[in-house]
């Protein structure tokens, strides 16, 4: 793929609050039409960084450029190209959805009633748009927030933990929506503390911990670095375990050594956790069958964010 034009360029961003350094050194580029993930645990400096991108916080050092304009020096030109929701989509509860959109449209050049109608249709809010925001559910506020962010036809849409508080159906819809926007050429910057979410949504990712960017790269590339697990379930767990243990190409992982998400493990009782090369799986499976062990389940599990961190920081952990 040809290198696309850089929409957002962050260089050497630092922030010190009350003499305490919060953000040490954050640099990354977001290109046109890509979905860029910003991954890090809570408290790692994601939100502080995002606030610096949109001029809510002044950086102590470093630059943020949007479409070539410096957010610090030319905020009016730079912010024109950004639509954003920082944390929760907070809109005026005493105004209707429509009035909120009109309010923010007045703050932008060349946004007319037709454009407002257009964004309302994009987020599918035609039914309730004249109701007071006070009466909206969180999902609807999220949609209205996105509609607001889209008003000025931004080149870059920044969403801070957009799936927080949404139900699974809402999350799926949001994911499809984000892909649709990217397909139209918009760049998206999505922060999250969940690796799975970033894996499902993003093309590239920056991983941040304790105010430092640990890695920037393609999502698949980074995830494969951290490896993954293969989980086995069999009718006779002990026999299967013995057979797997006898194979030098299979590494058994005890329960205390892996950091697989608890919700996944609890759904797979008595699973044997292994690390194994993908092209060896068929061979192991054949041998299990030959030994008369009926395999009831086999599943690949991606590493958790925590493990990815362990790999990237070589054992330092996340917090």
């Amino acid at each position: 793929m040809a290198e696309q034009e850089v929409i957002l360029s962050v260089q050497g961003l630092k922030k010190t609050i009350r003499r305490k350094p919060i953000i040490h050194d954050v640099s990354f580029d977001v290109r046109k039409g890509e979905i860029f993930g910003f991954l890090g645990p809570n408290g790692s400096g994601k939100t502080t960084t995002i606030r610096m991108l949109v001029d809510l916080i002044k950086p102590t050092a470093g630059t943020v450029k949007v479409g070539g304009y410096d957010v610090q020096r030319q905020p009016e030109q730079a912010l024109r190209h950004i639509g954003c929701i920082v944390e929760n989509p907070e809109l005026y509860p005493y105004l209707s959805g429509w009035e909120n959109l009109e309010h923010f449209a007045r703050m932008l050049p060349d946004v007319d009633q037709d454009r407002i109608r257009e964004v309302v249709t994009i987020v599918g809010m035609q039914q309730r748009i004249m109701d007071k925001v006070r009466t909206y559910s969180l999902g609807m506020r999220q949609r209205l927030g996105i509609a607001q962010a889209l008003l000025g036809r931004p080149k870059l849409l920044i969403l801070d933990e957009p799936t927080n508080g949404l139900d699974p159906k809402g999350i799926k819809e949001l994911r499809e929506f984000i892909r649709m926007l990217a397909a139209q050429g918009m760049s998206l910057f999505v922060s999250s503390h969940l690796l799975s979410e970033i894996q499902l949504m993003c093309d590239r990712v920056a991983i941040i911990s304790r105010g430092r960017v640990l890695a920037v790269g393609g999502v698949d590339e980074l995830v494969s670095q951290a490896g993954g697990y293969v989980l086995w379930q069999a009718s006779d767990t002990d026999k299967a375990r013995a057979l797997l243990a006898g194979d030098p190409q299979v590494e058994l992982v005890s329960d205390s050594d892996h950091a697989i998400d608890e919700t996944i493990i609890s759904a797979l009782p008595d699973a044997i956790v292994t690390v194994i090369e993908a092209d060896h799986i068929a061979e192991v499976l054949r041998r299990l069958v030959e030994a008369g062990i009926s395999v009831t389940g086999m599943q690949k599990v991606s590493p958790s964010l925590e493990e990815l961190f362990l790999k990237l920081t070589e054992g330092e952990g996340i917090d």
Partner: peptide, 14 residues
């Protein structure tokens, strides 16, 4: 306190 200031100040207006 309502958080709307984040929307207000991230618009392209000084």
């Amino acid at each position: 306190s309502a958080g709307t200031i984040k929307m207000l100040l991230t618009r392209p207006v000084r």
